[in-house]
Design a protein around this nucleic acid. Sequence first.
RNA 1: GGGGAAGUCGCAUAGUGGCAAUUGCAACAGACUGUAAAUCUGUCCUCUUCGGAGUUCAGUGGUUCGAGUCCACUCUUCCCCA
Length: 284
Amino acid sequence: MAQKLNTEIVSCDSRQFYKELNIGVARPSEEELAAVPHHFIACRSVNDPYNVFTYEQEALSCIDRLFMTHENVIAVGGSGLYIEALSNGISILPDPTPELRNELQQKLKNEGVESLASMLKQLDPEYYNQVDLANGVRIQRALEVCIMTGEPYSQIIKQPKQQRPFEIETIVLQRDRDDLRRRIDLRVDQMFKDGLEAEVRNLYGLRHLTPLNTVGYKEFFNLWASEDTNEPCNSANMDNQARNLSAQQIEEVSNAIKLNTWHYAKKQITWFKKKANQSKIITL
RNA sequence: GGGGAAGUCGCAUAGUGGCAAUUGCAACAGACUGUAAAUCUGUCCUCUUCGGAGUUCAGUGGUUCGAGUCCACUCUUCCCCA
């Protein structure tokens, strides 16, 4: 389609941003990347992760540039929130200081969600009444904003967002569920053939980073980490040197990745279902 | 042939006289404003006017006010010895 429209592609995939992640995030192939210029693919390091807002700003200016020489631009991706931010904008919110984030994280970990929830009730009763009170991450984020700005999060996000200087047509791709599931299985098998295990092994030392909390990677890390705790005597030299897996373990990891990818696909379906009335739906 | 163990809602698992029955997974539905491939929630025997109602724990029969739990037999599975 990009070739037909003689244009370029902007990726909205929150994992394909990272140059260290390739096989496991099904990055477009060299040929595909060569066929059409792509933006936001392998452009960052996992050590310097994106957040939606930075992405939105950068993607917008990229799109502006592209519109100077192209009539159309194609944005593609599977990360619902990122697509949403790019097409409809996202509030301007402060980042927490590392100390604040850390403090809240500790509180969440040590005292549980209720403790953060009761803070939120004080600082932003309106949001308190609408959030999922079991979702610590969400409450933590709202608190960060309340504390940084001194205003309720729910008020700040009500402010109007930046208008888009272009028209958007949204297309949602659909596929029969059984077929989708079969294709996911094949895709994961192909990743293993392409050397997924080696790719993940090289990233074992970075497993604590947010972008590595990802399907296709975390399943390996979990397995290696559980082996670490089973054999603590080896843990010292395990950090950057994960052990070889048996055929049976490979099978286990592969099945876990297939299942988690399927779960993710279903969450995407749920997300895009909500946008269905503003989208054109194409069934494959 | 002899001895032992066991059959619970898709799978696994708890339950040893008060039970529509524990937990995990899967399945299904959903939430979502800087962690988003993340994080979190609900449903999950059947029907329901959401108060309940009706059927369940391999099968049949029995004991008991009451049985998934105890007894008898039947069927099935697994393990050990021959």
